[in-house]
Design a protein around this nucleic acid. Structure first.
Lengths: 115, 115
DNA sequence: GCAATACTTAAGTCAATGCTTAAGTATTCT
DNA sequence: AGAATACTTAAGCATTGACTTAAGTATTGC
């Protein structure tokens, strides 16, 4: 199995902030301008632009400017890589349970033979 | 649609740190004591205990102590809720694309024939 | 009992983050 | 052209977060 790709690191830091998650949820409902993104967030436009920069840097969001309006939208493929990190950890663990039996994890275990 | 449950907020902040993700990956391979968790991380045991507290607070990890050893393991159900947040955002967005047509998000709409 | 082990807790430090305000720049409207 | 709009960029600042060291507390081994 390969290690998860480097950008995943930035993706997780990006969604670690609740304001940025709100932005992602807003964009999940469709593209939006920077002002539209900012409107429900109760902070300066400047702050929103800074959050946007982080979301774009990790690839979760893309934007393009037409005239004076920058329109932003989600990049679903990057969402998928984050989603898959959780899935792979969970599946590894669940496989683990199958292999060893849950009781082994209960602490009572002494020296389980390796391999 | 319901809003995602409150704990999700803490889960994302928890995995926003790469050390804690390393810990989760270690635990994905099976339960471990605090010392075993700390060993590959190159930092003090104290720091690891603090990370562990955060992972436990959000429910991603559970531990129990037997004698002087605390054994930690993953809580797969919580992983699943985080996984599903990404999935739901991505799916919402993909449904959006289906509904509106990707060209609407392109802004530039260079008159390409629809469909 | 005494020492080693395996954490645990409490400060304290220092850099990274999440904002703010202020001063731009580029577009569009009238 | 001048004013309004929609960002953009640069400081600055207060807080949070990720460590550290140091001093505990329980357990276990000799």
């Amino acid at each position: 199995m390969l290690k998860y790709s480097p950008p995943v690191d930035d993706v997780f830091r990006a969604v670690g902030d609740s304001t940025r998650r709100d932005m992602v949820e807003r964009l999940g409902r469709g593209p939006a301008s920077v002002s539209q993104l900012a409107e429900p967030l109760g902070m300066s436009l400047s702050a929103v632009v800074q959050h946007l920069a982080i979301l774009e840097a990790c690839g979760l969001v893309r934007s393009h400017k037409v005239g004076r309006v920058r329109t932003c939208r989600l990049e679903p493929m990057i969402m998928r890589t984050a989603e898959e990190w959780f899935a792979s950890q969970r599946v590894a663990w669940e496989r683990n349970l199958d292999r060893l039996g849950e009781y082994l994890a209960e602490g009572e275990t002494k020296q389980r033979s390796k391999r």
